[in-house]
């Protein structure tokens, strides 16, 4: 039996997302929702948050761009914080301000095909594996016209994973500069979005937005393939996403 026959015998595995619905398992730690107001409990949970994603004073909320999905707050204070299996976590950048219309306008020229260039600025290695996974038969990003390209000269989207380390600052700038206009930048993973647990570390410059302008942020440690598809779809101006402040 040939490889092709073997592949066909496996049947269709591919999701319809984003054209149809898909879901993560019920216990997936996607996003933390604030369900209570007990400040005392919230403070105790906030003390156990390594990336300081929980703001307790004034408006009690969890910054999804800082959250690395450990679920510790929901274990310590389940009356205040609950895990939700949401995966549509991508956000549009607030500063500089991006809108879904502007992204759609910018990417109109790409037609039905978009080419992604990836740069690792200091990831933990799992973001790369999840980005690779969007091309596996379960997600098949090619069906959406999404392709990888080896050269920044051919790239429409720049996907940057990881917190930016000092030695990677310059290579990242140069890759960005080598891309033709119009260009869109996606920060992949919590560390890329906000610095995650490395905020303030002497060895890092900061999140991707500290080095080049970012349009779309995809949080998660690592973001699931569905979350990455959601972010790419947003970068193409196809789905409405919440902005970073919401």
């Amino acid at each position: 039996m040939s490889w092709i026959a073997y592949g066909l015998r496996g049947g269709i595995l591919t999701t319809h997302y984003p054209h149809g619905d898909d879901a993560m398992p019920p216990d997936y730690r996607g996003e933390i929702e604030v369900v209570g107001a007990n400040r005392e409990h919230a403070r105790r949970a906030a003390a156990s948050c390594l990336s300081r994603a929980i703001a307790v004073e004034n408006d009690l909320h969890v910054d999804v761009l800082r959250c690395f999905q450990c679920g510790e707050c929901a274990r310590i204070a389940p009356d205040v914080f609950q895990n939700r299996n949401h995966f549509e976590l991508a956000r549009l950048s607030e500063a500089p301000k991006t809108t879904i219309d502007a992204l759609r306008e910018r990417t109109r020229a790409f037609g039905r095909s978009v080419h992604i260039r990836h740069v690792d600025a200091g990831s933990d290695g799992s973001e790369e594996q999840e980005l690779t996974a969007i091309f596996n038969p379960f997600y098949d990003a090619n069906r959406l016209g999404v392709f990888l390209t080896a050269s920044p000269r051919h790239a429409d989207l720049l996907m940057v994973s990881g917190v930016v380390t000092r030695p990677m600052e310059e290579p990242l700038r140069r890759t960005y500069a080598a891309m033709p206009e119009p260009k869109t930048v996606i920060a992949l993973g919590t560390s890329a979005c906000s610095g995650g647990i490395f905020i303030g570390s002497q060895d890092v410059v900061g999140p991707v937005s500290a080095v080049i302008p970012v349009d779309v942020l995809i949080p998660g440690m690592p973001p699931s393939p569905l979350t990455i598809l959601h972010g790419i779809w947003a970068a193409l101006g196809r789905v409405l996403t919440r902005s970073a402040s919401q």
Binding site: E72, G162, T165, M168, P171, F198, S201, V204
Partner: peptide, 18 residues
């Protein structure tokens, strides 16, 4: 070591539980 993030240093400001 392009990707050196200071990981071993980061442990020092984390509790044993975290």
């Amino acid at each position: 070591f392009f990707k050196h993030r200071g990981l071993e240093e980061r442990f020092k400001t984390a509790s044993i539980e975290l």
